[in-house]
Design a protein around this nucleic acid. Structure first.
Lengths: 205, 205
DNA sequence: AAATAAAATGAACGGTGTTCAGTAAAACAA
DNA sequence: TTGTTTTACTGAACACCGTTCATTTTATTT
């Protein structure tokens, strides 16, 4: 049945076409300002067509959501060859922040948007990649404890706290709550705060 | 000129009427789902009337923004009678998180929404209250350093890091990125992570 | 009481996400 | 090849949104 195969392939290609256009527009001009009609224009199809491939706008966002987590996980994997677990942990944090600063719209989608979540509450599998990423953090924290870097055996609480800190720093920047600093000093200040955090947990947790 | 006075009073009352309705609806059903028409219905006026008192939806949000910061600052003031600066600092953090958990929509407006910011970039005074709140944090950190709790003299970096952590914890919850935990365990887990953070900075910074 | 000024209206504009009857193209059956 | 069925696509229409503005209602002044 070569025909059904081709059909499937074409369907996948169309989804990709839509997703690529959506990503381009989202990254360029943000989620709020990108409409289904914009995406339809971009790929030279009618708005209705998009609904033949995606149930609604949320589902479209979710494909991007997943893709974005894959990208973050890729970044995290760059860290796996670092021997020392503490060094590995802190570098991971730096990559996390870098990812957020460099891909604001994707970070928004992954950690800041509420709309995709609401529609999807039933589909728990959506968080699989998110959980994978968090498990990577937990694993490293575990190793730090085993290696004696952290004195208290609390993987869960420590991981959560570390995530909250880097996430907080990224979010403060993405939502432009840094007006107390000069524009060109904002990211450096946040990076500095992170280094303060690293010093803090260094051998003292 | 009793009449102009009354007019002014009436204008202020009308603004208050609109704001109260807006707050009620926002807190009840969120910002996204509250439209100008909803607010107009609630106060039994036509949609156009609202635009006689508020330039646009952003300006309405900003009045609420300011009010919400006042409320947070009030919470912070409850802490001022605590003698020990470290105890004062950590209690402030607890109040901050509590405020976020109990007033999700207001917290959203203060720290998470992007729409009000964009429209207002010119009006720097909007951040005055935000800066006041942050300055309260800085002041306490300063006192902690003076009292010898923190060894490194870096008010800015330390304050930023502390804010980022509590803000991160609140945000993770508000944006429902805690699906790895059972529903009734989510807030306790975040509070636990905060206590881990407190232990971390206790005499070790 | 008439003229003027202020306040409130609600239809209209251009936008949004989404649906669906209708059309065009492709696949299948004869 | 022709006719029929299945599939793909269209674009007008629906109900909403924030916002504007000519018009009407209400209040104040002359």
């Amino acid at each position: 049945m070569g025909i059904t195969e081709r059909k499937e392939r074409e369907k996948a290609e169309m989804k990709r076409l839509i997703m690529d256009a959506a990503r381009r527009l989202f990254v360029e001009q943000g989620f709020e300002k990108t409409s289904i009609r914009n995406i339809a224009d971009e790929i030279e199809y009618s708005p209705g067509t998009i609904y033949l491939y995606y149930k609604d706008k949320s589902e479209l966002l979710f494909d991007l959501h997943q893709e974005s987590f894959q990208k973050l996980i890729e970044q995290f994997q760059r860290v796996l060859n670092i021997r020392d677990p503490f060094e590995r942990l802190t570098t991971m944090g730096r990559y996390y922040m870098q990812y957020g600063f460099e891909n604001p719209e994707l970070y928004e989608l992954m950690f800041l948007m509420s709309s995709p979540i609401e529609t999807i509450e039933c589909r728990e599998e959506i968080w699989e990649d998110g959980h994978v990423a968090f498990e990577m953090l937990r694993q490293i924290v575990r190793e730090c404890i085993e290696a004696g870097y952290f004195k208290i055996d609390d993987v869960e609480g420590t991981s959560m706290m570390i995530w909250a800190t880097v996430h907080g720093l990224v979010t403060i920047h993405l939502r432009k709550r840094t007006t107390m600093f000069r524009e060109d000093e904002r990211i450096p200040r946040l990076e500095h705060a992170y280094e303060r955090f690293v010093e803090l947990i260094k051998g003292k947790i």
